[in-house]
Simulated scan of single mutants.
Amino acid sequence: MTISRRGLLAAPALLVAVPALAQQRVPNSELVKPGTLVMSTNPTLPPVQFVDSSGQLRGMRIEMGTELARRLGLTPEYVRVEFSAMITGLNARRWDLINTGMFYTEERARIMQLVRYEQQTIGISVPRGNPKNITKIEDLAGLSIGVEQGGFEFRRSQDLIEDIRKLNLRPPTVRAFDNFAVSFQALRVGQLDAAISIDSTAKEYEDRGDFTHALKGLYGTPVTVGMRSRVLATAVAAAFTEMRADGWLPTLMGRYGIAGWDEGYTVVGPT
């Protein structure tokens, strides 16, 4: 499994190689590099995608992408890049597949091929001990909240603002950062009152003792991988179906406490 140095973040040149299956199931004409599944990821969301202390990519989605590549008879390669550059990079054929926990939206389904595989909800993290006693969304009124720019979480932050405004309360101020790691660092040093992320990441930070996971289960939405090629997307959907049938994917997600997508793996996108 190789990691490209393309993108906005530097990365190690090599991780442990994972043998591909003997038969390649996607023609090279549909791929950026022959025999390779090039995937973009933003590794700032532990435990599902992150960089460990030795500089290696880890997490549920990294393991999942590696297994997807193996079942397609391809060698996995990861490009570390901010989410805001991923869709334009996909269109420019810099990578084959966006594997970063991209939430499903109808807008995205109109511009790329999507396969839903995961169900996620949004959580709110606050300083340890929850000093402002945040127990419901109304308690966020007037506060400063951080989130990654460009992603679904940012869109949901706008829904949160509107929901609080409907309660005739002063909406929070939402600050957008390049990635979640920077947002959480701002929370750590007192520049924010709260930070938005997926629930699994909020729980991970709470388990580490860094922050308190004050609110959870907000705005449930399916999570997807995104592709330019419908041929590749069809093969990925078939691989997901196999991974679920033989228990590999449920076992992986269960280990990380992630809810899987239970409505079948179908390709949604332009034809």
Rank of each mutant, 00 (worst) to 15 (best):
M1Y: 07
I3K: 00
I3G: 12
I3V: 15
S4A: 14
L9S: 09
A10V: 00
L15I: 03
L15P: 06
L15C: 00
V16N: 13
L21H: 14
A22G: 07
Q24H: 09
V26L: 00
V26K: 11
P27C: 10
S29N: 11
S29A: 15
V38Q: 08
V38L: 15
S40V: 02
N42T: 13
P43V: 04
P46W: 10
P46C: 11
P47A: 12
V48A: 10
F50N: 06
D52F: 13
S53Y: 05
S54V: 05
S54C: 01
S54K: 09
G55Q: 08
Q56D: 09
L57G: 15
L57F: 03
G59P: 02
M60Q: 12
I62P: 11
I62T: 15
I62Q: 11
E63M: 11
G65Y: 09
E67K: 12
A69W: 06
A69R: 08
L72H: 12
L72S: 06
G73K: 06
L74E: 04
T75K: 14
P76E: 12
E77R: 09
Y78Q: 07
Y78V: 05
Y78R: 01
V79I: 10
S84R: 10
M86V: 01
N91V: 01
R93I: 02
W95N: 08
D96S: 05
I98H: 02
N99L: 14
T100I: 10
T100F: 05
F103C: 08
Y104Q: 09
Y104V: 02
I111L: 02
Q120Y: 05
Q120W: 02
T121P: 14
I122R: 02
G123Y: 01
I124R: 03
I124N: 10
S125A: 15
V126H: 11
R128C: 03
K132I: 01
N133Q: 12
I134Y: 10
I137Q: 02
E138F: 06
I145L: 03
E153V: 09
F154D: 14
F154R: 09
D159I: 02
L160K: 02
L167F: 00
L167I: 00
N168V: 05
P171L: 13
P172W: 06
F177H: 14
D178H: 09
N179I: 04
S183A: 15
F184D: 12
L187G: 06
V189A: 01
G190E: 07
L192V: 08
A194Y: 11
D199V: 05
S200C: 05
E204Y: 13
E206V: 01
D210S: 08
D210V: 04
F211Q: 13
A214Y: 14
A214S: 09
K216I: 06
K216V: 08
L218T: 04
T224R: 04
T224E: 07
V225G: 02
V225M: 14
V225R: 07
S229A: 08
R230M: 10
T234H: 01
A239E: 09
R244E: 15
R244L: 09
G247R: 03
P250H: 06
L252P: 05
M253V: 02
G260N: 00
W261R: 00
Y265N: 00
T266Y: 01
P270F: 04
